[in-house]
Design a protein around this nucleic acid. Structure first.
Length: 698
DNA sequence: GTAATAGTAATTTTT
DNA sequence: TTACTATTAC
């Protein structure tokens, strides 16, 4: 087709040599090492567009990303490249969404029913606490979270409870293994899966069933995995299973230097070992950086070169030098806030920056608070990214729990969440009795509830009335489900139980109530949109909707975030990955904070990950980068003496020792606030520093 | 069954 | 300091 070959040519002209090689190497294993700001997304989208223009059928291409947002953006950009219309049949999705699809299609082979529900993070904690109570383990939320993290890491390497037993060395290990076993049993009887299962179950299925595996290999002949440095063990095996050994058309894209999710199971050795996994693999390094000034990149290169385990590479600037990186030391964390806010006012009022150009990046979310206070005081618009998500809100989770039960009546955990919300006289004692009864009869909690509502012996009339109210509501929901009117189902269910009144009781302030119920209304409006969409047809599609919700697919809210373009940004280093800003303040560049105290305890592995985090922070900046370190940092109501981050001091030493003709990597300055007017609260920082030093040394 | 109180621990996060 | 949870008292 001449039209598409012309389109292809113009596509390829827009790329540099390395990018073009990555785009044109369509067959065989390919590793694209895409440094920060080197046009990674461009390579991925052009590569897929290239395949499509060459005539590859869209349904034979699978692109896997880590976030829904990334998948959505890629889809749009590919559509733009291939002539505006979205290629039908092209699969661009997250690992988890792909997992849901496979589970839905192959649930019979796994022992799940089609109406399975996905339980979320806090649901997981509740489940585990129930299990821990049963096996007489520690039941505090903290313990449960810790054990859950261990179980999750086990699942992320496809380890079974039995595997944990094999590896156990002490009582605690056995306890975790037992908890894991019970936890999985609970999920299974309730026809539920957790997030880890969305990867683990399909991965195991593909590995154990050659026929099913062959089917997917036949379908997905070109595989592309983004953010490969972040894949965990299960995702790795999932991917490997999908690669047809005869074709080996697998392209992975990532940057080992930006692997910052080790704590949730990411295994960066996979990207280091790709060439062993796929002998003969082509490796393309993207090192030309289109984002930052050369001053910023020099610092970034120097920092990351201190890491041992990495693919050697070096970012090259395409931009000029720009302003030197400024490292500012301040006496205290309060002064850090003062200084930065003053600098921001100067930038915006005198030097022509817009608040939108500026980001304040921090190691931990907690560090945002003093900035928020000060920015509000000075009426500087800001947005705090991350933090409590929409889906963590009580009312949102309650609503979803109601709908989960309507869809999957075996989902006891969702029922437990709302069994007494709104209050209907079913307290802890009653719940325990219901639970025991359900176990005895090996039935779901909903079934028990129905029997109580129908007048099962031994329950008070108040309890019976409560049970009847709830089970009637679910019965009506079933009717509406059969009619295929999901908005009616969802709204009706909440109406039937007077959920809004319960919220009103909880939040007497009308504004709060408005915002709380507003969140539920938002959910309902996405149900409505779903109802009107062609996808809505039959109860199965309701399950798809609920799954999409669980996978954070409420597009409404994502949109809202993006259109909120007001003000500077406060966010953690983790959540800033992939983003860029003209002006970046990277705060708390101190030992114990960056690297974080906990990671220091983990030894070299922890330190290297923190160094990558620092590198990620540095490479977010386009033109201006500030680093700040405080001598005293307030945390948890106490002041702690801090020393500058080793990530800077190590450079001072090693760069000097090399005898390199250094252009300094940064411009150092310190800020001392003018003494406050009245003597009583003037602090002599030097004295205090000496005093604490002595305390520390002695 | 609920409300008040004391005690404890404290990264990073998407799906 | 704060936020959350376990315990205790009503």
């Amino acid at each position: 087709m001449p039209a598409s070959s012309r389109a292809l040519e113009s596509l390829l002209r827009e790329l540099n040599d390395a990018q073009r090689e990555a785009v044109m190497t369509t067959d065989g294993p390919l590793l694209v090492l895409a440094g920060a700001g080197t046009g990674k997304t461009r390579v991925i989208t052009y590569r897929i567009a290239h395949l499509l223009l060459r005539g590859v059928a869209p349904e034979n291409i699978l692109g896997v990303t880590f976030t829904n947002k990334a998948a959505r953006e890629m889809r749009e950009r590919i559509a733009a490249l291939t002539g505006g219309r979205k290629p039908r049949g092209l699969t661009l999705s997250t690992f988890h969404a792909l997992g849901v699809r496979i589970l839905r299609a192959e649930c019979a082979a796994i022992g799940l029913r089609k109406n399975f529900t996905i339980c979320d993070a806090s649901d997981q904690v509740s489940r585990l606490r129930t299990v821990l109570r049963d096996i007489k383990g520690p039941v505090s939320a903290g313990d449960a979270r810790a054990i859950l993290a261990t179980i999750s890491l086990a699942k992320n390497r496809l380890a079974s409870p039995e595997d944990l037993v094999d590896d156990a060395t002490d009582e605690y290990d056995y306890l975790i293994a037992r908890a894991y076993l019970r936890y999985q049993e609970g999920l299974k009887t309730q026809n539920c899966v957790d997030f880890d299962d969305l990867i683990l179950l399909p991965a195991r299925l593909l590995e154990s069933s050659p026929e099913i595996c062959a089917h997917y290999r036949q379908r997905f002949r070109w595989l592309l995995v983004d953010e490969y440095q972040d894949t965990n063990g299960a995702q790795y095996r999932f991917t490997r299973a999908l690669v047809d050994p005869a074709r080996r058309n697998v392209c992975v894209v990532g940057d080992d230097d930006q692997s910052i999710y080790g704590f949730r199971g990411a295994e960066m050795d996979k990207i280091l070992r790709f060439e062993q996994d796929f002998p003969g693999a082509r490796v393309v390094k993207l090192e030309e950086n289109y984002r930052s000034t050369s001053d910023i990149l020099e610092l970034a290169n120097a920092v990351i070169s201190q890491n041992a385990g990495r693919h050697p590479k070096r970012l090259r600037a395409t931009a000029g030098r720009g302003a030197p990186v400024r490292w500012v030391t301040v006496p205290s964390s309060e002064d850090e806030v003062d200084w930065i806010v003053r600098e921001i006012l100067d930038l915006t009022q005198r030097r022509g920056s817009r608040p939108d150009d500026i980001a304040i990046l921090m190691r931990s979310a907690m560090q945002a608070r003093p900035f928020e206070e000060k920015l509000r005081l000075r009426r500087i618009p800001y947005r705090l990214i991350g933090g409590q998500s929409y889906f963590d809100r009580k009312e949102v989770r309650d609503a979803i729990a109601y709908w989960n039960v309507a869809h999957n009546p075996s989902d006891d955990m969702s029922l437990l969440r709302i069994i007494n919300t709104p209050r209907r006289g079913i307290g802890n004692t009653t719940i325990a009795r219901l639970d025991a009864l359900a176990r005895d009869r090996k039935e779901s909690l909903v079934a028990t509830l129905e029997r109580v509502a129908a007048g099962a012996e031994g329950f008070s009339s108040a309890v019976r009335a409560g049970a009847k109210g709830l089970s009637d509501a679910f019965a009506r929901a079933q009717e509406r489900a059969r009619a295929g009117r999901f908005e009616e189902l969802c709204r009706g269910l909440l109406d039937d139980v007077s959920y809004r009144d319960a919220l009103a009781e909880l939040y007497s302030d009308p504004l709060t109530l408005q915002s709380r119920w507003g969140a539920v209304e938002d959910l309902l409006s996405s149900v409505k949109r779903f109802d009107e969409s062609p996808a809505s047809d039959g109860p199965e599609s309701f399950g798809e909707f609920l799954a999409a919700l669980a996978l954070q697919g409420d597009d409404d809210h994502e949109d809202r975030d993006e259109h909120q373009h007001a003000g500077l940004v406060l966010q953690t280093l983790h959540s800033a990955k992939g983003l860029e800003y003209p002006v970046v303040f990277l705060i708390g560049v101190e030992d114990e904070s960056l690297p974080h105290r906990k990671s220091i305890e983990d030894g070299d592995r922890g330190i290297e990950e923190e160094r990558r985090l620092f590198y990620v922070g540095i490479t977010r900046a386009r033109q201006v980068l500030y680093l700040t370190s405080a001598t005293f940092r307030s945390a948890y109501g106490k002041e702690h003496l801090r020393r500058p981050s080793r990530f800077l001091s190590e450079l001072r030493e090693s760069v000097g020792a090399d005898g390199l003709p250094l252009s300094p990597l940064w411009e150092n300055s310190s800020y001392r606030p003018a003494a406050k007017a009245e003597g009583d609260d003037v602090r002599n920082y030097l004295d205090e520093y000496r005093r604490l030093r002595e305390l520390q040394d002695g």
